[in-house]
Each structure stands twice: as C-alpha cells, then as structure tokens.
Computed example of a mutant assay.
Amino acid sequence: MRNRIMVVLILVLGSGWAVCRGQDTADEWDMRVHSVDGAHFYALADVDSVTFHSRVIRVPAGHFVMGDGASYCGVDEHEVTLTRDFYLGRHPVTNKQFMKAVQWAFDNGYVTAAIESVQDNLDGSTERLLSMDHEACEIQFDASGVFYLRESPGSAQSAYPDGYNPADHPVKEVSWYGAVRYCDWLSMQADLQRAYEHAGIWTCNGGDPYGAEGYRLPTDAEWEYAAQYDDERISPWGFGPPNCDLANFYNGSTHCVGWTSTVGSYPEAPAGLGLWDMAGNIFEWCNDWWICDLGPYLVIDPTGPQTGTHRVARGGSWNTADTYMRCAWRENGYPGAGYNHDLMGFRIARTVGP
C-alpha cells in the first residue's frame, strides 16, 4: 500500500501540478493522498516539499565490541559478530502505528479490549498488551469498539501547555508481550511466518531470532550494534556528551521536554544509518531475556539467556539522565503489565532474507 500511496502523490505533484498551472493561483488546489484510512487533503499552496522516509533501515552484518567498560550492565567488553543483515525500524513505533494495528487485531478477533486494557486472544494467550488505564497511555478505547488517541492528562500538559498531537509520539504503556504481538500482527498482514510462540516463555523462532522470517524485536546485540554504528561510539551521535539539541532526556537539573517528543525531532543518530531516537525519548524493548553480566567471551549471533524474569530494555527515555544515553547502557523491565511501562516503547526488526 505504501508504494501505491507514493505513486498517487507523485502523480499529484507532477501531472496534477501541471493542470493547475493554467489557473491563476495554486490556492484553489488541494493535494489528495489516498491510504487505507481514506483520503486526506492538503492545501497545495501550503506544501513546499515532500519527503519520503523508509520505516525500516537495513543494517549490514558486522563485528563490534559490545560493552564500553563503564555503562551499567555494559561494563564487560566482548567481541560480537552478527552474521546476517537485518532491518531495524527507523524510529520507535508510534501511537498512530500501534493504534492502527491493534484496531485491525481487534476487528479480526486476535485481541480483546476493554476501557482499561488490551488483552491477547491468540494461541490461548491472555497476556495484557497495552495498559490504557494509565494516564501515560495516549491510546484509548470506547464502547463502540473503536480505538482513538487523546492527549495524556499527566506530565504532558506541563510539557505542552498549548496542546500536542500524540499521533507521532512513541507508544507508551505497552508491555513486552504487546511489543512482540505487534510484530506478529505485521507478519500476519504481510503473510509471513510469525516469529513468536504465544505460550510458555514466548520463544522467538524456537530460540533462533536471527532465523525468523517475520517481524520481531531486535536482539540485545543488534540494538547496541546499530546504536554505535560503525565506530563503537559512546552515544548514538558520537563521543561527546548529550545535550537537549541531540536527544530528549533529563539533563541533570531540568527535562529537555518533560514528555515524549514526536519521533524524528532530533538529528539522525547514528547518521551513518539514519536512525531516530536511539537515545532518549522512550525506552525500547529488546528480544532477549535479561542478564547483567554478559561475560568477556567472543560470541557469534548471541541470543541471551534461554529463560529469565525480565527482558532487556535499551536507550533511556525523556525522564532518565544522560548516562542512560550511552550505547552500551543496559536496562530491563518485567515483560507483563507493570513497573515503568509509562517509559517503555519499542522498534521493530526483521532479518534480511536470503
């Protein structure tokens, strides 16, 4: 569908503009963009440029040193080789993207929903995927079966006193189960084999995430490899300290924003890949079970522990200090609904096929 949208837009800007050149002014013309959500109109006189961004970035296979000798649970430095190229989301999944997907899942009976939460309804699972009863959650659900967006009534009101549009802010209050379920929804829509089991410990592709066909979360190693690409930099933007022009975080005395920001509000970092928000804004779930001490050993395509109680989270958030911005800094979270999920989001990954 995205390709068809692009074609329509090119035709409008090309042949459509050629038609309107015969008019006295472009003020009378609208640009109409078609998508699965319907047609959207934009005043042509207000459009000065159109930019297309891929939702995923191809990250080449390679070798790097994981850990930096100083970061929390990233002290141990060890060599890691990733043998397969992979796609990584350019930015964290947004409220708009998650809402569209969960509406599809609800309409097809893959989830159940009430005012306070979205529950899984596939493969016998009933895990909570999204906590809508928390003020941080900007996705809501009404009695007619429709999901919609709202401004958070919490800290967001101080950060954005004139109001804000939550559509392109990263989704919050999503559990690890909700993140991997979203990946599976994308796989189902694309007719790809789902990556995750939805019983027991929710293993990714039988314990081999790198061999999964469908969408998934990045592994712990893939996330750090992409964040420091490709010079083993300390932070995604380089070797210097963070500031509020580079990322959305808590700078030691005040918040840069005081809430999440629209994805892509800061410079691409690492610029060599063109990724957004790898540090700050929202923590990102990773595929792996959590363990702090990774050891000093050479590892090829690491998958982390086979079991655990918590999952790896990366990147820091709008409400965490500058030390969390380091590529090697490793955090964790309980995969079900609960602690700190107002700071948890995610980005998608997928192994590049043969």
Rank of each mutant, 00 (worst) to 15 (best):
G264C: 02
V75E: 15
R150A: 14
A349L: 04
G258E: 04
D288K: 06
G211V: 02
R216S: 01
G264W: 06
R326Q: 11
A227E: 04
M278C: 13
G315N: 03
I5N: 11
R150P: 03
V59G: 06
G145R: 02
T254C: 11
G207Y: 07
L130P: 05
L9E: 09
D245H: 11
P161V: 00
Y225R: 02
F239Q: 13
H310D: 15
A199L: 10
F147D: 05
G206K: 06
I5L: 15
V102Q: 10
G124Q: 01
L246H: 05
N243K: 07
N248V: 08
D123G: 12
W237K: 05
G206C: 04
G274V: 06
Q193W: 06
C286D: 00
L192E: 10
L82P: 00
G274A: 08
N287E: 14
L11P: 08
E232F: 04
A328S: 10
A105L: 03
T219I: 07
E232I: 07
L44H: 07
H169W: 01
I201C: 11
D123T: 09
F249H: 09
D277R: 00
E268D: 15
L82F: 00
V80N: 01
G62H: 00
Y334V: 12
P60I: 02
D133A: 13
E224W: 02
N281K: 00
L217P: 01
W259C: 02
P161C: 05
A156P: 09
L275R: 00
A156R: 09
W290Q: 08
L298S: 14
L294S: 14
